[in-house]
Design a protein around this nucleic acid. Structure first.
Lengths: 149, 149
DNA sequence: TATAATAAAGGTCAAAGATAGTCAAAGTGA
DNA sequence: TCACTTTGACTATCTTTGACCTTTATTATA
């Protein structure tokens, strides 16, 4: 039970008990616990996952940080998230969105935007390039959102 | 966190909150914040871009200045759609979304959703499969959507 | 007055610094 | 053995600085 990862996990869990969002310094933590910095990544990636209700973002460079956010868990949402571990086609996604609107998890406007964002037109791409797909999604949403208003 | 660039950014944002156009002195600013003058250029070029709705002009020589202007609302969407003909990284997208919110083209909620939808986490993918990316996007959005501000 | 020198801005870019991320290999314990 | 942990070398990203460059205004001088 006394492996460093568990100890670090407890430490972080304790820190995020009060606030639902905290900023960590990878190097400071590693230093504090006398471990390698990548150990912090290990702890985060094995214990602070989406499945367990955590979201991690970070920034490098001077003043960099690791931001940990505790995510809300709702039973409808949990079911949906489970389904979304698998690939899903547009129609399936649409059904899920309708369902979420019905259950007041998201609003109709939010659903509209999301369905544009995940339409085939937005996502089908000859090349697997993140930046390329990103601009395609935004373009698709923005072009169509104007029509709707 | 505490990197000077963020602090300077806040300072300038605050200054331009009242007037939609301000003149800055590079040297004075650098002096005030105790940083190198070129740091000011760094802040301007990374944070006060056209994508974010700012236009920067300047004059050298005695009595020189840096003029910051918020761009005209009408041209915003056109500029953005034009920009989106090219691939775009996450930070660029975020800037565009902020700008669209500022100009009332989309709401803050819509921006929040979209920025989750096009985050690196949502889009980075080992395989170029539409359905796979779709579920990833939705998952990423839904997991984070409930954190009320 | 016209021109040349100097001063007073701001611009550029590459290197150094400061973080964080990745991945594979080695270690550990049930 | 096998899964989990730990480490370190290498990579990626963002920030900060400084040396050198360009432009413009002002002052000195022929």
């Amino acid at each position: 039970m006394s492996n460093i990862s568990d100890i670090i996990e407890k430490f972080i869990l304790d820190a995020i008990k009060q606030d639902s969002e905290i900023d960590l310094s990878r190097n400071e933590l590693a230093n504090f616990f006398g471990c390698s910095p990548s150990q912090i990544n290990y702890v985060l990636s094995t214990r602070f996952t989406l499945d367990r209700g955590f979201d991690v973002t970070s920034q490098r460079g001077g003043g960099g940080y690791i931001r940990l956010v505790r995510v809300n868990e709702d039973s409808v949402l949990r079911t949906v998230l489970n389904r979304l571990k698998e690939p899903i086609d547009y129609l399936g996604a649409k059904h899920i969105l309708d369902n979420l609107v019905y259950n007041n998890v998201i609003s109709e406007e939010e659903s509209d935007i999301l369905s544009l964002a995940v339409s085939s037109k937005a996502l089908s791409s000859p090349i697997n390039n993140e930046n390329y797909i990103r601009s395609q999604i935004l373009r698709n949403v923005l072009v169509n959102i104007k029509r709707g208003k």
